[in-house]
Design a protein around this nucleic acid. Structure first.
Lengths: 340, 340
DNA sequence: ATGAAAGCGCTAACAG
DNA sequence: CTGTTAGCGCTTTCAT
């Protein structure tokens, strides 16, 4: 066996480079060393295959170059995509990203925050399942490192990146109104979270701004993963059945489409459909479903920028970034059928 | 502001407990301290809200209680589920799990392993995208910590957890053969990875064991996320069209079902369908699709057990655990239509 | 079983 | 800009 696998420390590098330990450290950190020293140290490090000991670095500098990320559920493709985008973005900045699944469980979330603290994360990005929970708010208040809240309204002076759900839904409704639709249904889940609240609000605003009555066509499933087939079926059986559906994408689109198919309605001839959140399923469906899409990359950039600038300077005022939604028109939207 | 947020160190705890620093340390680690000392230290720690400094602990003990996990793509729900199960399992053992997306990109994978090394992971769990890539194999060879390979055949003396794809597919084929099906198609992607190879093998074995010719009905999509609508449509147009389809679940099931619907065939009356990998989509489809399902929890337990026992004792011989697949029968399988 | 003391590998503070 | 020195918070000897 090779005698020393990871035994090369900075002292060895310094010795080979013919400089002091301190200079070697400065050279490695790219600050306060002459070009000549830089060069010598870099070469020595490369020659020895030196890898800095992260724990020592963290212990001494009190900076871990690691951030924690607490998301409700990584098996939801939308969050998985955000995580991937975040990972890329942090990697670019030489930061490591830690993931924890909150699973809409305050206990789990609080525990994850505790782990983040203990492991000395430099910062945290989080989207709690229940944003109004007192225990969560308290855990967040005592958090010793900066936090950026993702698309939630959590009380406290945290930075936040907020998705413009209201604006997005409003735009879709206006588009549908323009095509002649009046009976537009909104299918969501009933959770008390910002995205849901704002979508409903955008829905209402669009009708009000157009001087139209807000239709009583709001369907709210019990859970974010529930099927809405029964509810949508019931909706479609009404005499004043909707001519357009705006449906939460990940889990509900499928059951909504099946309810439509079961009643032998055709998309978009008999009914138009827009999904909230883009997925392969929506894109590959026949007809391809128009969607309201989040720009994951831009969202990630915002989150990372907010967190990194705050880690660099905690004196900054509280900031809130807003990210718009993109309406991707595909083949599931048309003018409503003529009324008989 | 509160003067000290995280300034309570073990020295403070020891002082309050009236014992030495060393005893406090031993008490915290639950080894080599008297019950009385244990108690005093625990109380003092609780009273002060002491949280051990992880970096210091790692630096001194050379154990990070952290493992890295390198998966091809977390936005694939199947991997997302495995990750969640792993997270739970490691949390139970007081380990932290780090996730990196390999994205079927050897560069990215190698880099991730480098990060894992530098950050002092105690071990690694990985499912490389390309298991035969030389650079990857080399990166794995020089890895200074134990690795457990998940469902891949990577050369090297690593422990591995292997899913019994061959057995699973064979069982499904045998079930279909028993119902009278002969023209059974297998729809996968064409990647050169163990799961794909073993599924094909199980498919062949089933026919051979039954003394039947292996049908020439293998469809292989270019990528794991590609649509197979065109291919399946072509398949269904043949005079000897298959009466049963076994389809990779996550991305291909949807397009396969659409191809079936487009030809106005009904499941299961005209054609039976079995998906590989369970998803909400399969379960909620109408008719609900029978699937070959991985037991995520058991898989996670195996992986964690293998890794943790090896971390504890690196002298162990190489081990390979096998995990079976569960056939979940739903409504998409029936006897084949009568031949005209 | 306990206390005292010695570092783990690194960065930061201090002189020069 | 550089070398020297101290010490981050903890675990782990080594004596007792």
């Amino acid at each position: 066996m090779n005698a020393g696998k990871q035994k090369i420390d900075l002292r060895d590098v310094a010795r080979l480079a013919g400089v002091s330990l301190g200079s070697a450290s400065r050279a490695m950190n790219g600050a306060g060393a002459s070009a000549a020293t830089q060069e010598k140290v870099n070469q020595a490090a490369a020659a020895l295959g030196y890898r800095p000991n992260h724990a020592a670095r963290v212990l001494r500098s009190r900076l871990s170059r690691t951030v924690g990320c607490l998301l409700p559920d990584i098996s939801n493709p939308l969050y998985a995509q955000v995580f991937r985008a975040l990972e890329d973005e942090f990697l670019r900045h030489d930061y490591l990203l830690l993931l924890a699944n909150g699973a809409n469980d305050v206990d789990r979330e609080t525990k994850a925050l505790g782990t983040f603290t203990q492991r000395g994360m430099d910062g945290v990005i989080l989207a709690p399942g229940n944003e109004r929970n007192a225990a969560l708010v308290e855990a967040l208040r005592v958090l010793p490192m900066p936090a950026v809240v993702f698309d939630r309204e959590v009380s406290g002076a945290h930075d936040a990146v907020l998705i413009d759900h209201a604006g997005g839904v409003r735009r879709v409704v206006e588009h549908l109104l323009g095509l002649g639709h009046r009976d537009i249904a909104l299918v969501l889940w009933q959770g008390d979270t910002r995205p849901v609240r704002r979508r409903v609000q955008g829905f209402r605003t669009a009708f009000q701004a157009a001087g139209l009555p807000v239709p009583d066509l709001l369907v709210q499933a019990r859970s974010v993963t529930a099927s809405v087939k029964a509810e949508v079926t019931e909706l479609l059986a009404r005499p004043d059945r909707p001519t357009a559906l705006i449906v939460q994408g990940t889990h509900m689109l499928n059951s909504a489409l099946r309810a439509i198919a079961a009643r032998r309605l055709q998309v978009p001839r008999d009914i138009s459909v827009v999904a909230i959140g883009d997925t392969p399923f929506a894109a590959e469906h026949d007809p391809a479903v128009s969607v309201l899409d989040i720009d994951q990359a831009e969202t990630a950039r915002c989150l990372v920028d907010l967190l990194l600038t705050r880690i660099a300077d905690n004196g900054l005022p509280q900031r809130r970034a807003r990210v718009g939604l993109r309406y991707v028109e595909r083949d599931s939207v048309a003018a409503p059928p003529r009324y008989s």
